[in-house]
């Protein structure tokens, strides 16, 4: 890992004023991303995963209030003029969106949509451009790329659309590729293919990848580090091993426990679930946002101040559980 982070997010908050009050979609999120690193961001729907990324790219609607700092190679992105930001989008930081069908323009040929991503940032001859487009489609594993480039999105299958979208976003070999639930709408075999494409891209280019998902299974094989988010806040950050084998937050534990597992003797055993519903972002409980659903939250201290990420031990493993020392005291000693 490089010394200087490629992307450094500090206290990023996003608020949406609504008729019912202010929605705190993202509440003081901080993380850094090193060159070539893959960061997984996990959380339920509405936990602020996508909004965080859209805020980084400056793609949120105007009414969104974004505060905090996002530094890309030392340059501050928050508050940057749109025509300046435009030059970074797609070239330095690119984002693959969740719903590939609606994310592709239905009336423009796929090849042209990819070509556009290239010509937006550099001058290139027509011949080189079409060769590059075909090469990109090939890279993401689309058969007959030359022919497929002339087709429209509706002529593509779901998995192909997602891969075409990825091709579009890696066209300029971005430094940071943010993939927002790239596999959610796809069936399992196609999911594997798309993840494979991401892995291949990572090897071919030196792109750092931010992989956003609610599926821990997807993260497990790909991510170096994992950030767990809940109700717009970060609750745990650590290496993939830390998160999967030594979770230090009850929410992360709950997420892991609710994964279906083949090695567990099931039969009558029902799938674990986290009790209750995620809180409304209009009215978060005081103190820890996970408090009402937490199996360990019997203590007064859980209602206390808003928990911050705190390092556990010497490792770069951070948890926002207020009682982390008590709950995990034994595990702490043995690890």
């Amino acid at each position: 890992m490089a010394d200087e982070p490629l992307l450094e997010v500090t206290d990023l908050s996003v608020e949406f004023p609504t008729d019912d009050g202010v929605v705190h979609a993202v509440d003081r999120v901080s993380y850094s991303l090193a060159e070539g690193e893959t960061l997984g961001i996990v959380g339920e729907s509405g936990s602020g995963k996508s909004v965080t990324s859209l805020a980084i790219l400056g793609l949120l609607p105007k009414r969104a209030k974004v505060t905090g700092s996002v530094r890309f190679l030392g340059r501050e992105l928050i508050g940057m003029k749109d025509n300046e930001m435009r030059l970074l989008r797609g070239r330095n930081i690119a984002m693959v969106f969740q719903d590939a069908l609606t994310s592709l323009n239905p009336v423009i040929r796929v090849g042209d949509q990819i070509a556009e991503a290239i010509t937006a940032h550099r001058v290139i001859s027509k011949h080189d451009l079409s060769a590059r487009v075909i090469k990109l489609l090939e890279l993401v594993g689309i058969p007959n790329p030359a022919e497929r480039a002339n087709q429209y999105p509706h002529e593509y299958s779901g998995g192909m659309r997602q891969r075409a979208l990825i091709a579009m976003m890696i066209a300029n070999e971005p430094d940071v590729l943010i993939a927002d639930e790239p596999t959610t709408a796809l069936d399992v075999t196609i999911q594997a293919q798309v993840l494979e494409v991401l892995e291949r891209i990572k090897q071919r280019t030196s792109s750092a990848i931010v992989l956003i998902t609610h599926d821990l299974g997807v993260i497990a094989g790909v991510a170096d580090r994992v950030l767990v988010m809940y109700a717009g806040r970060q609750v745990e950050l650590g290496t993939a091993d830390d998160i999967f084998y030594r979770p230090r937050h009850p929410y992360t534990e709950g997420l892991l426990a609710s994964l279906p597992r083949l090695d567990r003797r099931s039969g009558s055993e029902r799938l674990h679930r986290i009790k209750g519903q995620p809180p409304s972002l209009l009215a978060l409980p005081p103190g820890c946002a996970f408090n009402p659903r937490c199996p360990h939250a019997k203590h007064k201290s859980c209602d206390g101040p808003r928990p911050e990420l705190v390092a556990i031990g010497r490792r770069a493993h951070l948890s926002a559980c207020l009682r982390v020392d008590e709950i995990y005291a034994e595990a702490q000693e043995s690890s």
Binding site: L59, R86, S103, N105, E116, A117, A120, M168
Partner: peptide
């Protein structure tokens, strides 16, 4: 629409 967001994410000019 989502594809407008995609177009912006690619770094296209506003006019385009």
């Amino acid at each position: 629409a989502d594809y407008i967001r995609t177009a912006r994410a690619k770094g296209l000019r506003r006019r385009q």
